[in-house]
Amino acid sequence: MALLDIQNLTVKFATQDGEVSAVSDVSLHVNKGECLGIVGESGSGKSQTFMAAMGLLAGNGKASGSVRFGDTELLTANERTLNTIRGNKLAMVFQDPMTSLTPHMRVGRQLTEVLQRHRGLDNAAARAAAIAMLARVQVPEPERRFQMYPHELSGGLRQRVVLAMGLLCGPELVIADEPTTALDVTVQALVLELIRELKDTQGTSFVLITHDLGVVAGLADRVAVMYAGRIVESGTVDEIFAAPKHPYTKGLLACTPRLDDPPTVLLETIPGQPPNLQNLPTGCSFHPRCVSAFEPCPVKRPLLVPAGNTLNACFLNHMQAAS
């Protein structure tokens, strides 16, 4: 049974220039003990999808559709209900560790307040648990770091503190937004190893929001590729990476440099820029940048339907699957 089930989620922001849809009609689910990778360029709606799920949209944002976590409908839940779930069973680890910690509070206090809130631990117990968690996310000298203010830690350490914060209460699902971006490769490997371990031994589910396809390939069970607020392709990691169907997924994968490429090979790029959400292209949002676009693409929007081994939203694949 799905632990997190998102159905037809649409997120709109009221701006001075009118309403902007950051997320359009997104449906996805995460099973228990599963890791779902969400990939896409900046502004593709991958973070906002889960901000909406957490009830953390900016004041001008509005979410519609359904987000079920276990037995709770999160979109209509009141703040009190959300606060018993957030940070407890459902945790979010934010990107941008430089600004995600409160600058005037010691790191330790920011960790222990989570345990005191959800577990009712006393100071000493919370302190011990927090230091143990810091050690677990590979923070060296955790007792000393516990006493420090965020600005006294490097970006990588802060990222690990933010991760520790998410894992403190042993959540069922961790939504990790670019959890390894600020880390150097060796620490990145250790953190990914920790995520894998939690997944395997404790059955923790993960959503990995990233544009690092390598991380997704190594860790995720399934992948959803987002473009301009919609999922354009989703399937198991093996299928998507071995045989991407959507031209955008193909493009993304082609952009990843490979170690065994000779140094003379030019890095592939997807031409053009991600579209302006206020002024989306007609039809398929990707068609202006798509190398395979043909007649129906600018006219009609392709639906996300099974085609080949994945769900994808591309007329080319729909035709091939039909024939």
Binding site: A91, F94, R117
Partner: peptide
């Protein structure tokens, strides 16, 4: 209120007052 660390605090499930 728009700062990222306030968002983090809310994501921790802390009551609004806190």
């Amino acid at each position: 209120l728009r700062a990222n660390f306030v968002r983090t605090a809310r994501a921790k499930g802390l009551p609004y007052r806190t």
